[in-house]
């Protein structure tokens, strides 16, 4: 399987590349600086380290949305999940707008939300190996308008947010599966299987 990590100014993609390489022996992971460089990949990955404003989506927004609407398999992680939504309180500029809804600041007193938290799957989870707990590092969370897209949630000081969402062949993940040990990698493998099936 060919996996392309879209490098739209995200920074360090090494540990993510390593995580995807580890899930199947015949996986070929490449880093694509432009969406056009990823056209032959079976799966696109939108990684995410850093802030909303650090990402240069401008030239890629429409191409990305059109491809995901057509059913291009895609996994967005952390900021990469947030970018799939309409907009964010973190910064100016529009997101990809594939999922309807905004990204808003967590209402918890303690921010950033850093560390391991419990994750609860919804009925939509099905074949996805939703982990019991996962590693998070974020201050903002996605608020999908369509509840039916939510695969898993996490609750922080009473603020419950979607930590996994799915639409068509795209899955957004707020936590870092690549930092969530064995369960995180198993979940990532199940997500890859699901979107590319």
């Amino acid at each position: 399987m060919k996996i392309a990590l879209l490098d739209l100014g995200f920074g360090n993609l090494h540990s993510l590349a390593k995580a995807f390489s580890s899930i199947a022996p015949d996986t070929e992971v490449t880093i694509a600086p432009r969406v056009s460089d990823a056209s032959h990949a079976d799966l696109w990955v939108l990684p995410g380290v850093g802030g909303w404003s650090a990402v240069s989506l401008e030239q890629h927004r429409e191409t990305l949305r059109a491809a995901l609407e057509r059913g291009q398999p895609c996994i967005g992680i952390c900021l990469g999940m947030q970018l799939l939504f309409d907009d964010s309180e973190e910064g100016a500029g529009k997101g990809i707008g594939f999922f309807e809804g905004s990204v808003t600041r967590l209402s918890s007193a303690r921010r950033p939300h850093m560390g391991w938290s419990r994750v609860a799957g919804t009925e939509r989870a099905g074949s996805l190996a939703v982990p019991h707990a996962a590693y998070f590092a974020h201050s903002f969370a996605c608020r999908p308008r369509d509840e039916a897209t939510v695969v898993a949630t996490t609750t922080i000081e009473g603020d419950t947010f979607a930590c996994v969402a799915e639409k068509k062949r795209t899955i957004g993940i707020q936590f870092h599966p690549e930092k969530s040990s064995t369960e995180g990698i198993a979940f990532l493998a199940s997500a890859v299987r699901r979107v590319t099936a």
């Binding site: 918890s108 303690r110 939300h113 560390g115 391991w116 938290s117 419990r118 707990a133 000081e157 009473g158």
Partner: peptide, 8 residues
């Protein structure tokens, strides 16, 4: 209420 699982 603690938000997170305590870490080692």
């Amino acid at each position: 209420m603690s938000a997170n699982l305590r870490r080692v």
